[in-house]
């Protein structure tokens, strides 16, 4: 949980350094804003006495700092919205329940003698094609359906800031899900000697794999107005690629080239504890291609 928070908060911290120093001290009083605004008519504060402020001139933020601050603003709203609706809890609950079924019961018997998490990672990797579309389905589809996307895009933000912000917000939920499974390795490490190398590799693999599925899901979501459609399309395509890798075991030779297309192939490779540049490049490519396609989809509104 805490790991995730630091992940999403990080860009904001760097952005605020660049923008203004007083921001830091104002942040503390931020929570009180609501109460203060509500109590405003009783005693006008010093801040209120101040005139409206320059206002009229354009405030254009062209710097790298603004990019991060817009992205992190959107990301934290996106992340927060999972928990102001039921979706965030449903996704986490469903994920942990399935992990419990798939991992804990079979695994409890395997653990005797040799403490390895290999079976756990394999099981969780089965869940990624299911859980990631659920995380990503809402990102654009829902905002397109309700019309909030128009409101967001007509703010002075770049399309890329919207896409990255939403993607990072979704990754936040993925990170919460994955982090929650850390209880398993800690429990195991009390029972026997645990080789942490493959565990760390496994978690990096899970996160990269999940991040790729989520990126794909975000892209699908940006092409539809219906989040259920977004879920099923992303799920079916993701599951096909996942199963393709399992099926390829039966074919030798040329078919092995296809393995490179399957996220699961690269995941298994990383989960062995060997982090190969090829695997990283694969995940980074899937993510960037998906997000670029998302940008294209978002841009198409202007021309249709």
């Amino acid at each position: 949980m805490s790991e995730n928070e630091s992940k999403t908060e990080a860009p904001e911290a760097s952005a605020s350094e660049e923008t203004a120093a007083p921001e830091a001290e104002a942040q503390g009083g931020d929570d009180k804003a609501l109460a203060d605004v509500a109590a405003r008519e009783e005693k006008p504060s010093a801040a209120e006495a101040r005139p409206a402020g320059g206002g009229a001139g354009p405030v254009v933020r062209g710097s790298v700092g603004s990019f991060f601050s817009n992205t992190s603003t959107i990301a934290s709203r996106e992340f927060g919205s999972y928990f102001s609706s039921a979706l965030g809890y449903i996704v986490i609950g469903m994920f942990l329940l399935l992990v419990g079924f798939l991992v804990f019961f079979p695994f409890a018997f395997l653990v005797i003698g040799k403490a390895s998490l290999q079976p756990m990672f394999n099981s969780i990797s089965w869940l990624l094609p299911l859980i990631s579309p659920a995380i990503a389905m809402r990102t654009f589809a829902e905002e397109k359906r309700t019309g909030t996307l128009e409101m967001l895009i007509t703010q002075p933000v770049r399309d890329w800031e919207v896409i990255l912000g939403k993607y990072l917000g979704a990754l936040g939920l993925l990170a919460v899900c994955i982090t929650a499974t850390l209880t398993y390795p800690f429990a195991i490490s009390r029972m026997g000697e645990l080789d942490w190398g493959p565990v760390i590799g496994g978690y990096i693999g899970l996160f990269l794999g999940g991040a790729s599925y989520v990126a794909f899901g975000v892209m699908v979501s940006s092409y539809t107005k219906d989040q259920i459609t977004a879920f099923f399309v992303a799920f079916i395509v993701g599951a096909l690629f996942f199963l393709l890798n399992k099926a390829l075991i039966f074919f030798g030779g040329a078919a092995t080239v296809l393995e490179y297309l399957c996220p699961d192939y690269h995941f298994t490779s990383i989960a062995r504890g060997v982090i190969d540049a090829r695997n990283i490049i694969y995940f980074v490519s899937v993510i960037s291609v998906s997000l670029m396609a998302t940008a294209r989809s978002l841009d198409s509104r202007r021309w249709s």
Partner: peptide, 21 residues
């Protein structure tokens, strides 16, 4: 409104006054 103010690059210390307004 805070979210909107963030996107409009209104610094945190001015946000409260703006929102009140």
């Amino acid at each position: 409104l805070e979210f909107a103010a963030d996107l409009r690059a209104i610094s945190k210390d001015k946000q409260r006054a703006k929102i009140k307004e």
